[in-house]
Design a protein around this nucleic acid. Structure first.
Lengths: 336, 336
DNA sequence: GCATTGTGTGCAAACGATTGTATTTTTGTA
DNA sequence: TACAAAAATACAATCGTTTGCACACAATGC
C-alpha cells in the first residue's frame, strides 16, 4: 500500500510541499495555473489527505463528537440523522458516543472526545448527570459546545430544546376540549427541565379553561410502561380522573394497558394523550394521541449551531423547536 | 488552555520524551521505579495524550469506523450498542456513519474512514450496493474489515450474520403446527442473502411437513407497510392462502391492517408471522408473532471479531447468530 | 580481569501536513 | 531601463508521539 503524500506531488511537479498544500487549500496566494496543475496531478496520483497530520498541526479536527443517552431511542437516532444531514455535506464527520444515561460514561466520553481534539461537542445530558465539571473541561479547551433536549443553563453555548411547554399545553387543551373534566398528568423526573415545562403547559391549559389544578392528579416519575400500568390503577381507585396526559408514550402505553385490564373503554370512559409520538403510538389499538417532536429539524438546527460556533459566528443562546399535537383515537371523543 | 505534553513531563523529571512515552505505554524496558514516577506526575500534571500525534506516528488509530444503512432502525441501533459494549472497554472508539441505503454515501463513508486511518471498518451493505470496488480499497489499505447482516462473500474478513434460514423455518413450522394449510411468504429483495435464506427456511418447513411449495404464494419485494397492505389484498383475492410468513415486521403490520380492513379475524381466519421482532410487534392488536434477532449479541460478536482482526489473530470467516421464534396472538390458533 | 550479556535511558529521525517569514519572480510605472 | 510594489513560491519550524539505534553502566561468566 503506497500512500501518496503532499511532498510526493511536490517532487513530481518540482515545487515545495507548502505550495502544494496551499494549492489544495485554494489559497489565494497560489496562481491559478499551478493550482490547477497541483489539483490535477493530486487526483491523478490518487492523493488522499492524511487527516491526522493536518489535525495535529492545526490543533483541531473536522470531527464533531456527539454524546447521547441512548442511540436506540427513536428521538435520539432521528436527531443524529438530522445532525448528519447538515454536517456531512459541510465536510464534517460525526462520532456518536452513548452515555447509557450514566454520568461516569458521559465523563469518559467527554474526555475521549477532547483527547481526540474534536472540533466540537454536541451533547444531551444523561439522566444521572448532576454535576458539570467534566463539561467545564470542554469550555477550557475552547471546544464549541452545543446542547440539545436535555440541557443545562449553567454552561455557555447554544441550547436547543423542544417547545415542551406548548406541547403540554396543546395536549391538555385537547383533552379538555374533548370534554374530559378531570385531566390527570403523569410526569417524569422534575430534575429534567423538559418535564417541568410539560407540566407547566398542562397547568396553563387547565387554568385557561378555568379548571382547578388538583395535586392529587399529578404524579411524577412515571415514564416507563410498567409505571404507567401501576400508577393508572392507583389513579382510578383514588381519584375521579377521567383522562391523563402522560409526559411520554411509554407511560401512556402502560396506562392504556392498565385501563383496558380494568375494563375501561378508551376514549369514551377515559382519554389518554402521550408525548414523543413514538413509532408505535399510531399502531396501538386504539391509536395514541401524542405530541410530535421534530427530531430531524432539531438535529438540523443543532448542526447549524455547531457550524456557526466553529466558525466563531454569533450563535443563538437558546433555540426552541416547535412541536405538533397529533390527535388520534385514544382521546378523540366529542371535540368542540 | 495549557496543554501538557509528554516532554513537559520529561522536563519536569529530567528525562527524555522517549522514556516518558515508554513508561506510559508500560514498556518493559523501563524500570519499575521510573515508570511509577512518570505515571504519577503525568496524572498530577493532568496530562492528556494527543491521540492524533500518536496515530500519525503509528499510522493507525484506536478508532473503529462503522457504516450502517440507517441508525434509526431498531436492529441496527442495537447492533451498534452491542459493538460499543465491547469496543469501549477495550480502549477503542467507534464512529458511526449512515449510508442511508445509498451506494454513493457508502463509498464516501469508506473513503472518509480510510482518510481518518481508522483501525478497522465494520460494515453492513446498503441496499443499493452492487459493486465492491470501494471495499477493495479497504483491503488494499490493510484495514481490518468485519461485515455483518448484509454481507458479501466476495471480500475477505469476518462475516457475521443471523440464522435467517432457521428463522424462516421456525416461523413457517409454527404456522403449520397451528393448523394453517396454505402458508404464503412475503419476502424482500432476492439480492439480499438474508431474504433468500429466510425463503429457504420457509420452503424447508413446508417440505418437511409434506406440503406443496406454491410459487403463487411467494411474493418478493414486500418489505414496507404499504406493500404488505396492498399485497395481502391481492393474495387473498387470487389464492387460497390462509397464513403468511412475512420476512419483516413492517410488511406483516401492513398485511394485518389489510386483512382487518377486509374483515378477516386474526388468527382464526388468517395467521401472520413477521421477522425482526420490532418493538411495536408486541404492542399490536393482536400482537405479532415474530423472529427475534439478537442484535446485541451480534454486535458483541462483531466487535470481538474486529478486535481479533486488529490484533492479527485468527478470525472466524463466518459466524452465525442464532435467532429465536416468539409466538404471539397473530398466529397462535390450535397449536399441536 | 576481560569479554559478554542484559538493563535502563537518551538521541534523533520519523509521521504528513500547515503556516509565518524569507526569497524569488513578475508586473507596473515613471 | 530602472526600481518599487505586488504576486508567487520556497524555506523551515512546528504540531506531539513513537521507535530503531546507540550508549552507559552493572551484573555475570570464564
Amino acid at each position: 500500500m503506497k500512500k501518496v503524500t503532499i511532498s510526493d506531488i511536490a517532487n513530481k511537479l518540482n515545487m515545495t510541499p507548502s505550495t502544494v498544500s496551499r494549492a489544495l487549500a485554494n489559497n489565494k496566494r497560489i496562481s491559478e495555473s499551478t493550482r490547477k496543475k497541483v489539483q490535477d496531478t493530486s487526483k491523478e496520483m490518487g492523493y488522499q489527505p492524511n487527516v491526522m497530520a493536518a489535525s495535529l498541526r492545526k490543533g483541531t479536527s473536522d470531527t464533531i463528537g456527539m454524546i447521547v443517552p441512548r442511540i436506540n431511542r427513536h428521538f435520539f437516532s432521528n436527531v443524529i440523522s438530522g445532525v448528519e444531514e447538515i454536517l456531512n455535506p459541510a465536510g464534517f464527520n460525526l462520532v456518536v458516543i452513548q452515555s447509557g444515561e450514566l454520568l461516569s460514561r458521559e465523563v469518559k466520553a467527554v474526555e475521549s472526545l477532547l483527547q481526540n481534539r474534536v472540533g466540537g461537542i454536541i451533547l444531551s445530558l444523561s439522566l444521572q448527570t448532576n454535576t458539570f465539571e467534566h463539561l467545564q473541561d470542554v469550555v477550557k479547551h475552547n471546544t464549541p459546545l452545543v446542547q440539545f433536549d436535555r440541557v443545562t443553563k449553567s454552561l455557555p453555548g447554544s441550547k436547543i430544546t423542544n417547545d415542551n411547554y406548548t406541547g403540554g399545553y396543546l395536549a391538555t387543551r385537547h383533552l379538555i376540549k374533548c370534554g374530559f373534566k378531570h385531566v390527570a398528568h403523569f410526569s417524569g423526573s422534575y430534575k429534567l427541565r423538559a418535564y417541568r415545562e410539560r407540566k407547566a403547559g398542562y397547568i396553563a391549559a387547565l387554568e385557561e379553561a378555568g379548571m382547578r389544578v388538583d395535586e392529587k392528579l399529578i404524579v411524577d416519575d412515571v415514564i416507563t410502561r410498567e409505571a404507567g400500568y401501576s400508577q393508572i390503577h392507583k389513579l382510578v381507585m383514588r381519584t375521579n380522573a377521567d383522562a391523563v396526559f402522560c409526559a411520554g408514550d411509554y407511560s401512556a402505553l402502560g396506562a392504556m394497558e392498565g385501563l383496558k385490564s380494568l375494563g375501561y373503554h378508551i376514549p369514551d370512559q377515559f382519554g389518554i394523550v402521550g408525548f414523543a409520538n413514538e413509532p408505535f403510538s399510531e399502531l396501538m389499538d386504539p391509536s395514541l394521541s401524542s405530541v410530535e417532536q421534530n427530531a430531524l429539524e432539531m438535529g438540523n438546527k443543532v448542526a447549524a449551531a455547531m457550524i456557526k460556533a466553529i466558525q466563531k459566528e454569533e450563535v443563538p443562546e437558546e433555540e426552541v423547536i416547535p412541536v405538533r399535537f397529533i390527535g388520534r383515537s385514544s382521546s378523540w371523543k366529542d371535540y368542540k
